[in-house]
Design a binder for these strands. Structure first.
Lengths: 199, 199, 199, 199
DNA sequence: TATGAATGAGTGTTCATTCAT
DNA sequence: TATGAATGAACACTCATTCAT
């Protein structure tokens, strides 16, 4: 009684699903996924961290894989650093931001999980590509295109190759255990663009 | 330090341990480690693949972690491609060989496992660095030093940064799902060294 | 006693419960109970089959056991085959009808469930006796009494024992996996009544 | 050292499997299977009742179904009652023994489980037929054949039908809740063989 | 030494039931 | 009343490790 049409038709039948829980669960899942990896992320753990019951998780995500996938989908390209007019400075900023993202908590570990699980759970790597890798590449690519236009980058160079080189340098350094300290982004951009060579 | 369980507990007394089995076990472990990852590598599986019993494995490696570490230690840098006089060609060859190593069955998956396990089992990443990453970097670095001497590379560029860019490009492309096809190494070297820019 | 949860808790006050749903639920429950057994009948399944929500079921039946019991109570002895004057023919018809009931979809499975659950849920077997077993026995018994009167059956024979033998033959054959094909009822009646022996 | 050829080849490698446990596990399983039914028989429960760990059970029986099947296979036709010269008396004895088997602990419940699980786990009913139903039928059948020879049974009667009637009477009475007390077997044999009818 | 047996902790998923609209 | 959400208790099965030959 007293219910409006909207109430009845909006799919409001039954107890409404607590919307906050969705996010809490995904947060907990993403945290555990990064910190411990897929196979070391027990659903009990996610439930406990999220403050819900395991069954509540299963209500939203049929399987553990689906949960992990949904958690990965929440990855959003960190708000891109603002673009100034200086292309080279923008490249450095973008690269530094990327390295920071990797360093911050669990970036590399998350990548590791997706790679390690590829044979068993290919969705993870695929989603990671869509949600994290590609957006970053696109942003970088856009900057490089502008760099070409401005003559900062040799027009003959394959922009995809340069994108890979710049972003890849971060992977390589993390993997090598080289701490990417102050000035790292500058040095890398310099190394890759090799501008000094051109007097 | 660096001694395995077997090293520590046994001298020459008693029936000597069949040394062949050691190798067979490590081979099987490395294969499963790459193909399925640490957490998906059951000791039963290693035992079966190696044709020994689980207990035999534990006789040599106290824990699963020790086994995995020992397996990683068997990684040897693939025989470096022969060096010609042409530095640039050597760089391309080295890079192509690296990419091939990554692609060949389980390179990226193995990296993924080491990264994913870093929080739980830091030894893996550490050993992977020593046995796989560093040797490769060293080889690349040597070529780059020669490139500097010959003026192919700007003497101002940080050779470590360039090393990271070149090798990292391979990681980045794998991670992005870009198939590294024919001519990939050439394009990457060109992009990184940016030679075309210097008329 | 014999009152359902609904009977007990509600008079005529408030919005009356949709009576159609009651039947739909019980139908669905009886079907699943026969097809899959008590422990393999999930309430979700009943709810889905009936097109209602789980909570709606619990509104009428406090527990799963009560639901199953109510479903069993809907069992009605199949309309008895018409009685002709010929007692022997009537016995055969009755027996054939019984065997058909057992064979038809889930007769034996339902019996199995009631028997298997006896220790855990004695109500089921009890209700099954009242609603299915006894009515059938009574019908058979009536025929046998007439048979006695007409001299077809030896007046000294215990009619209950003969009833058990005739109906039981059907159980025994199902349990033995003997397909009860054409002429089965005739042969059984002949075997039990053993009339041929009396010239 | 000191091992004979037999020791090595007899399959004696490694710790020998404790032979008692096999039986204890199967006993516990059969007990729980009869008392509670297949779906209410938790492996934990079997393990606890048998005093072994769950994994020990899985070492011998891959799945719960396999365990239940193996437990059923241990069913042996109870040592047949001794045959006297008197065929009728033997029939009565056989039938009484059968009814006692059904009554003793969990006979009917076990039948119920096998019937109830038929759709989901047909092996159970199948094994029950082989191990319990058929042997009993065979014994009964043998007696009936002798009865025919001796003229106690009409030679025209289908012996399988009579077998089903005799054994089935026991099912029917249990299902009807009729307590099969003193003299039950005699009355049933009398009713089925219907001898009194022949003066 | 090497083997198969044995174990205890852990894990994903299901389900009857209760709650909040 | 009726609905979907939420829960806690099970449960079958896996696995690293230890034991007894």
């Amino acid at each position: 009684m007293g219910k409006t049409h909207a109430d009845r038709c909006h799919g409001a039948a039954g107890r409404p699903r607590c919307p906050a829980k969705e996010a809490v669960i995904l947060d907990a899942a993403l945290m555990l996924l990064s910190e411990r990896g897929f196979t070391r992320m027990p659903l009990d753990g996610v439930a406990r961290a999220a403050g819900v019951s395991k069954a509540t998780i299963h209500l939203r995500f049929r399987t553990k894989t689906e949960l992990a996938a949904a958690a990965l989908k929440t990855l959003r390209p960190s708000s891109a650093p603002p673009e100034t007019g200086d292309v080279r400075a923008d490249l450095v900023a973008q690269l530094a931001d990327f390295a920071a993202t990797l360093t911050r908590t669990p970036g590399m570990a998350l990548i590791g999980t997706c790679l390690a699980e590829e044979a068993h759970t290919p969705e993870l790597l695929q989603l990671f590509r869509e949600c994290a890798v590609q957006p970053r590449r696109d942003a970088m690519r856009r900057l490089l295109d502008r760099a070409c236009v401005q003559g900062v980058l040799a027009s003959g160079a394959d922009p995809d190759a340069v994108t890979s080189a710049l972003l890849g340098a971060s992977y390589a350094d993390h993997l090598a255990g080289r701490t990417t300290a102050e000035g790292w982004a500058e040095r890398t951009v310099a190394g890759v663009l090799a501008l000094p060579v051109c007097p």
